[in-house]
Design a protein around this nucleic acid. Structure first.
Lengths: 189, 189
DNA sequence: ATACGCATGTAATCTGTTACATGATTGT
DNA sequence: ACAATCATGTAACAGATTACATGCGTAT
């Protein structure tokens, strides 16, 4: 039997289903806010993408409007079909390993510069990564300190946060070693 | 004076300029091939994106057709303007730190599953990352062994390859630790 | 002759970003 | 009255993927 293949562009739906499942019935507005403060570290979407997607998902039966509040506010909830879809994706979808990163592209091209210039660029990249690292670590501290009752997130997002911190740390180390390597090579001449 | 701001979608141009500078005059076909075997680890583009972009870049004076070969083959080279553009981007462009990764999204959502299921998913992710790691390490070995004269790449791409290897290794470690954490937590109950 | 790989392109479609547009509610 | 924020949407554009289409050159 032919198994349904997941299109690449499934991710927005999945992210929305996940947020909705983790935080309970929410409006598009709420979801856009939560996107910014949580999933944004791994996936981004603005409200102009979220509203139409929710409408399509409702048409496909993955979510449903459970209530309508003040000023046209629509509260969506995950349907059983939506829940099944989310589980199927998590359990069965082999995520594409492709990375598309401007920072990685810069790191790729940096040897085209003279050693001194390359070091300047790498130092700037290192600083950016240190800033990101600090930001993520601050998030983790806050998460540990605040009662779960206030956030209701539990472990949700914690593993991804840990991953992000490790990657940022790895990037800083890589920049350090690369700078040292370039300096060693140019000193040798 | 208002400094020209680089649009997000500059990256394809930059990648092409970099490849062209590193490997000398090439056709669109050559560049598409080189994309697959080098830059693909940090940025992807198919020939259907490359051909029109080269045409636009030629119109903007960043590259120029230096020769025409058999069956309509056009050989592009970087112009001085193109070289300046590449250098300006590398030296002056702060790369966006945003990451968009299906794997990271899965890692974000994985706590929504039952512990046993989560472990299964994490193990699969770990295996995928180990495979990628092996692939990248094989590339590095080949690079060390082969004479530079044959490849003419020099250090080009070497730092990015190192970064990729570190990130893959970090991912494997993260998966291991996360699996251990989940097992510890579910044993505790 | 015919099949395969080289080589270039366009078209249709999807995803994502930025900008535009509107109106309701709440606090001061 | 007014500003700020809540809340929803559409439109225009840019970027990326998949599929379609064509023709040359070479080896069998």
């Amino acid at each position: 039997m032919s198994i349904p293949i997941y299109a690449a562009g499934m991710s927005l739906r999945i992210a929305l289903l996940g947020l909705l499942k983790a935080s309970g019935p929410s409006s598009g507005y709420d979801l856009a806010k939560k996107f910014e403060t949580s999933v944004a570290h791994v996936w981004q979407a603005g409200h102009s993408q979220i509203y139409p997607e929710l409408a399509k998902m409702a048409a496909d039966g993955l979510v449903a409007v459970e209530a309508e509040g003040a000023r046209g506010r629509k509260i969506y909830g995950v349907t059983p079909d939506g829940d099944a879809e989310l589980r199927r994706w998590l359990l069965g979808h082999e995520p594409s390993t492709t990375v598309r990163s401007e920072a990685a592209l810069q790191s790729f091209l940096v040897p085209l510069l003279e050693p001194g210039e390359a070091v300047t660029v790498l130092r700037r990249m290192k600083e950016a990564s240190e800033a990101r690292l600090a930001e993520l670590e601050a998030l983790r501290v806050r998460k540990d300190a605040v009662t779960d009752a206030a956030h209701q997130w539990g472990m949700f997002g914690a593993y991804a946060l840990d991953l992000g911190i490790r990657q940022a740390r790895g990037f800083v180390e890589w920049a350090d070693d690369s700078i040292a390597d370039i300096e060693r090579r140019s000193d040798a001449t």
